[in-house]
């Protein structure tokens, strides 16, 4: 019969577990989201159950549990952005131009429109981000051009 102490040793070593978020980032790189297979793989690597890994992954909004567009457009809806004409008007403009509603990915897998809270660019608001790139001081004209370029590029 397993003693409590032995059961305890089944826990992952703390230092190893501390690498879990990093491992999830790496696992996510391949397909742009955490596929069930990727979660299983990470779980095996860490001697954890897939459920334990899922519990951590699902807590964080940057870990995606569904397919994402190649270009993820994140529009800030925070107060500072809203005050200077950002937030909903920008969300609406991007949504109109790409035919997306917040949270949706285009059927061709090119774009995802996401609404986020504060990109820590409140002093250069309105702000939005496309993948790793931050765009500040947005105006309707700048957004038009940005999206046109993006559509042309893809």
């Amino acid at each position: 019969m397993a003693t409590v102490a032995e059961a305890g040793t089944r826990d992952v070593s703390p230092a190893k577990r501390a690498m879990l978020l990093t491992a999830l980032y790496i696992a996510q790189e391949q397909h742009g989201w955490l596929t069930p297979q990727a979660l299983d793989r990470v779980a095996r690597r860490f001697d954890m159950t897939p459920g334990q890994v899922y519990a951590t992954a699902s807590f964080y909004t940057l870990f995606k549990l569904a397919p994402q567009g190649r270009y993820r457009i994140q529009v800030c809806e925070g107060l500072s952005c809203y005050l200077v004409g950002g937030a909903e008007p920008v969300i609406a403009q991007v949504g109109r131009q790409l035919d997306l509603r917040p949270g949706e990915t285009s059927p061709d897998g090119r774009f995802t429109l996401e609404v986020v809270e504060c990109l820590a660019s409140c002093g250069t608001a309105p702000a939005l981000r496309i993948n790793d790139e931050l765009y500040e001081h947005m105006t309707p004209e700048k957004i038009d051009r940005l999206l046109a370029d993006l559509v042309a590029k893809t």
Binding site: F59, P89, G95, R101, G103, E104
Partner: peptide, 20 residues
Amino acid sequence: AIVHRLSSGRSVRGQNFNRR
């Protein structure tokens, strides 16, 4: 008006309500 128009489409954050 804007709030109304968009509230139905706020699915991303809506999901997050449940996620945590």
